[in-house]
Design a binder for these strands. Structure first.
Length: 551
RNA sequence: GGUCCCAUCGUCUAGCCAGGUCAGGACACCAGGUUUUCAUCCUGGGAACAGGGGUUCGAAUCCCCUUGGGAUCACCA
């Protein structure tokens, strides 16, 4: 394809990198790589109130985790660099002002003095009259002298772009095709804000031009903005890049997948359960009532996480970081995200990033929006996990545990813990969930009387519980606590106590030591626990049920 | 409401641009089987061209309309 392809991903650091943004970044990266071009990262932090350094770092981490590394941009670890920076918009004010002066000189931009409140009134009027809001160009009627005077007085102002006269506007989008709109649909939008910062529209045009971006891939919510952008480019004499607008990602219920989904889930639960005050200390009464007073006041991430944990509800996974925490592998998330709107054809679905780079093209991007299907992601993760060698699985599980489950990372028999969980885990988290009994103290194991527990211990002609004393005695005799010894002991027990039915002895043992019907294979489970803990748990279980039910 | 975008199994999609294979695959689901639990694993199955008009010998594919869904209409990006 064309030479010098350069794409960019330009997030505003106001939250976390969510899956939609991640997919855009992946496509940008893949397109650049597929065409021997460069991928650039730019931080759009012109919103002084909402941008944060913490969020910026989060974006770097999330992108790095996915192995989407930028050739140009902020220098972090082994990514970034380039000499068309700085790559933070907040540090490019001079550049924007320079371009703004040109526009002012050409009389393609003008000062406007309406207050936000005044504009709000106009907007409401427009809504009531069932038409789209357009700025009425009132400030354009001001005389030069008045404007000069207002500015000298320090009257608060913005700068607006003066949309030139002309015919309809057409942009040829690489995904959507030709899109045409009447010029009158574009109003004189603000390009410089009252705080002296450029708006998104202005900064993005200046930066994309100065950084020589050739292809702009972005979410379809920007399709309408494109007309503002091409107008600005024409006014400034910039070349128009190629545009590719990617459809949105939705939740399974059809709603737009958004960063607000977590907040929504929490609100719903709180409302449905009539919870009137904060159940945890980390959310103050003030924070709670502020949150409850308006849907626009979202809880901080930490607060939301803590509250969800307290209420015992699962927050929907929407950010890249959520999937990392949940124990998915980055290459799987990347793979799955690619498939939401693009496919390589030939019935191929599972692939790595080398394959992606080789095959990626804009003309295979689907126009229609996609729903995010966690079940398929999970299935992909399972497949990928199973393809890992034992050593690789162990090292990656260890890595994950070090970050999210240090008590498991510290396990002396980590190797066995890993191998025992390899083929039965769909995510890294699965391994610690079904093996949580390992890190629980012997004296803290409890046995909820659920159906499977009752079935294994209390039901039947000869109950599992009644076999317990014999099992305990047999285990006491096992000298070396090895897989072979345990196995042979269990088989012997099965033939003497249960006509060779291994399940009849294994399942009561499993429940006794694990506190529930699910654990790794029984031999591994017992070795992981050790002989002493195994015996203690068996005894405690026997005592507990013997005392509660006079069987 | 104005403007713009979109429309193949429950879901992601292949097929469409260059009309002509029982509309293919994956996930999910259902039924069997393997397995000491859970999870895997194996076999089989049901499942879609939104509706209506054209064009054509022939339409999922090209055109129009209807319906449905979505985006956007900020001194946020």
């Amino acid at each position: 394809m064309s030479t010098n392809v350069k794409t960019r991903f330009a997030p505003s650091p106001t939250g976390h990198l969510h899956v939609g943004g991640a997919r855009t970044a992946i496509y940008c990266w893949a397109y650049a790589k597929a065409n021997g071009g460069k991928f650039l990262l730019r931080i759009e932090d012109t919103d002084q109130n909402r941008s944060s350094e913490q969020a910026t770092t989060g974006f770097f981490n999330d992108l790095s985790w996915l192995k989407i590394l930028w050739d140009e941009g902020p220098t972090i670890n082994n990514a970034g660099g380039g000499n068309e920076g700085p790559y933070y918009q907040s540090k490019r004010l001079d550049l924007y002002k320079e371009q703004l002066d040109r526009l002012l000189e050409l009389e393609l931009a003008y000062y406007a003095f309406e207050t936000p409140e005044e504009l709000q009134v106009e907007r409401k009027k427009a809504r009531a009259q069932k038409r789209a809001y357009r700025y009425n160009r009132k400030s354009l009627e001001l005389s030069k002298e008045t404007v000069t005077q207002f500015l000298a007085e320090g009257k608060p102002h913005v700068v607006r772009f003066k949309v030139p006269e002309g015919g309809p506007l057409t942009v040829t989008d690489c995904v959507v095709g030709d899109v045409t709109v009447e010029r009158t649909e574009v109003d004189d939008f603000v390009i410089f804000k009252g705080d002296g910062f450029p708006t998104y529209h202005f900064a993005v045009i200046v930066d994309d031009a100065l950084m020589h971006i050739t292809h702009v891939l972005r979410g379809q919510e920007h399709l309408n903005n494109t007309f503002k952008h091409i107008l600005l480019q024409e006014a400034l004499g910039f070349e128009r890049p190629m545009y590719a607008h990617i459809s949105l990602i939705f939740n399974p219920d059809g709603s737009k997948m958004s960063k607000r989904d977590k907040d929504k889930a929490l609100r719903k639960y709180v409302r449905e359960n009539n919870i009137e005050s904060s159940p945890i200390v980390c959310i103050t009464d003030e924070a709670w009532s502020a949150w409850q007073s308006s849907k626009d006041n979202q809880l901080e991430t930490e607060e939301a996480t803590a509250l969800a944990a307290e209420l015992g509800i699962e927050l929907p996974e929407i950010n890249v970081d959520d999937f990392k925490k949940a124990g998915y592998m980055p290459e799987v998330l990347l793979n799955y995200l690619c498939l939401l709107g693009w496919s390589p054809g030939d019935d191929i679905e599972q692939f790595d990033s080398d394959f992606l780079i080789e095959k990626f093209s804009l003309d295979r991007i689907v126009k229609s929006p996609a729903k995010f299907d966690r079940a398929k992601l999970l299935a992909f993760n399972l497949d990928a996990l199973q393809k890992l060698s034992a050593a690789e699985f162990e090292s990656r599980l260890l890595h994950w545990c070090e970050e999210y489950a240090p008590e498991f990372a510290a396990l002396e028999q980590f190797s066995l813990f890993a191998s025992a969980n390899h083929e039965r885990s769909k995510t890294f988290r699965d391994a610690i969930v079904t093996s949580s009994f390992i890190t629980v103290d012997d004296e803290a194991i409890v046995w909820p009387e659920t159906k499977p527990v009752k079935k294994a211990l209390l039901k039947g002609e000869v109950s599992g519980l009644s076999r317990m004393p014999a099992i305990i005695e047999a285990f006491k005799e096992v000298e070396s606590w090895s897989a072979e010894a345990i196995d042979s002991c269990l088989h012997t027990l099965a033939s003497t106590l249960a006509e060779g039915n291994l399940g009849k002895v294994a399942q009561p043992v499993r429940i006794a030591v694990a506190g529930g019907p699910v654990s790794p294979p029984i031999g591994d489970t017992l070795i992981l626990l050790g002989k002493k803990s195994t015996l203690r748990r068996l005894e405690r279980c026997h005592e507990y049920f013997a005392s509660t039910c006079d069987a």
